[in-house]
Design a protein around this nucleic acid. Sequence first.
DNA 1: CGCTTTCGGCCCTTAATACGGAATGATGGT
DNA 2: ACCATCATTCCGTATTAAGGGCCGAAAGCG
Lengths: 280, 280
Amino acid sequence: MMVDTMTPAESPETTGSGDAKGTSVIVNAIAVLRTFTADEPQLGVTEIANRVGLHKSTVSRILATFEQEHLVERDPESRRFRLGLGLIAVAGPLLAELEERRVAYPVLRELTEQTGETSALMVWNGAESMCVEQIASHHQIKHTTPLGARYTDAMSASVQVFLSAEPVERVRALLRSGEISYPGLDDAGLDGYQIKLKDVTARGWAINYGESSLDEVGVAAPVYDHRGDIVAAVLISAPRFRVSRERLQSLGEACTAAARKVTTRLGGRPPGGTGGTVPG
Amino acid sequence: MMVDTMTPAESPETTGSGDAKGTSVIVNAIAVLRTFTADEPQLGVTEIANRVGLHKSTVSRILATFEQEHLVERDPESRRFRLGLGLIAVAGPLLAELEERRVAYPVLRELTEQTGETSALMVWNGAESMCVEQIASHHQIKHTTPLGARYTDAMSASVQVFLSAEPVERVRALLRSGEISYPGLDDAGLDGYQIKLKDVTARGWAINYGESSLDEVGVAAPVYDHRGDIVAAVLISAPRFRVSRERLQSLGEACTAAARKVTTRLGGRPPGGTGGTVPG
DNA sequence: CGCTTTCGGCCCTTAATACGGAATGATGGT
DNA sequence: ACCATCATTCCGTATTAAGGGCCGAAAGCG
């Protein structure tokens, strides 16, 4: 999915078609909210209208409503809109639950500092891996994992980590239904994938060496809760050309160490006897 | 209710309090989102419907839309709704801007650890003080400051901090217009309040000793950015019975120390000559 | 310094859309 | 196995949001 390139002047009309799934105005409103990004935190009405394909007056009304609810506010200088602090109030209960974010933040920071590559905290959401925290690489050329980005590719390192903890039948069902995408899947591939997952468990971390996207590599390691269940994954992603096989190994180890640190700080415990000593 | 009245709509001027204007379905939808709290992260359709005063089918539809957009999700066990990770994606750009939150978190944690009372990070939003981070006291009896809570009371310690940096006329305007509430305000009170604000600046932190709410006390200290402007405030709030005048002093000092720590970690500088060591 | 262009907000009409009642299907308790 | 509670769907009605056009304001340009 990801954000596709948007043509500047697409057909202005065409209401109704498109996805048009049993929905509502709310979808439009959310689309407006989503146009705000970290790169472009401030937007004007016309700008938003063009991007979401709605008319100025509609967007203006939506924004006015949001402003009234403090979900957006306007820069006093530029008079343009930006996300409002009321969003904190709405998302607050969610953030409160995501203690992992807080705990992971300094660890990710350190990890990116150490490796120079983008690191992220991913959580499993039934059938997709979502980024809930991210520290971008300092490099000019980098692979970033936007906050809230969702991954459903079987080869994605974080997806591998989460699937490695799922029952075999569940994994098969996810692949069969296409909820987890695996291009050109066949029975042999399915068996091979199960073996791959076993390797992940054995190794302690997952590898995606350009398998989902040609010029991107990723490594991911699991974070456990107190019951020994996987609740999150630490992910390092980088452009492929910068990562040799040897470096991949060291990234994987750094990633695993970071994940273990998050685990212990969360009061969790890694499963099995691997490294029974207290990490430190 | 009105059927296509021929009479032109009433002039939508009058900036006064009569809200309920410029509304929409979106307001209802947001209301639904707001019913989720940290105390009750999971809710059923009927429950929500009762609280927001909408009908079940309406709420059901709204929730379905939100679910589709990943703003809410349902617990696989209980089948009840809770906030979804998609909210992270929406609020992400905002959170990215609020670097203060991250920096403040460990400091607040330490502050609450040390004082035993609830601490919070407040930011100023033109005319209200909003909580963007909070650590709750461990005590059974405590005053909590929910994430996203907004304060507009002139006696609130954090409001005092922010107003102490505003021009005199601006303060007067805010009080006169009622944007900042000051029960029984008169000219004498206004002068007295200005003096109070000067004291805050001089002392370096603000006191609310049961002045806004009888059984609650608060102290707050300013956080500065690199320009020396106040961008946030650290707040400690506690039940009044637990805070003697002496303890108030020590809380204020702890609060000030914490705020200063946040300031320096943000690369900010306190105004005046107080310990302005900033790494170059 | 004044003209042109862009942008944001309002009004108005149409028609699409959300509302709400009730019936249906799902769930869990006694 | 029955009943109670809850969520979801269907459908008619009319309320509501959409979108075009216009105006006022501000920015860009000659």
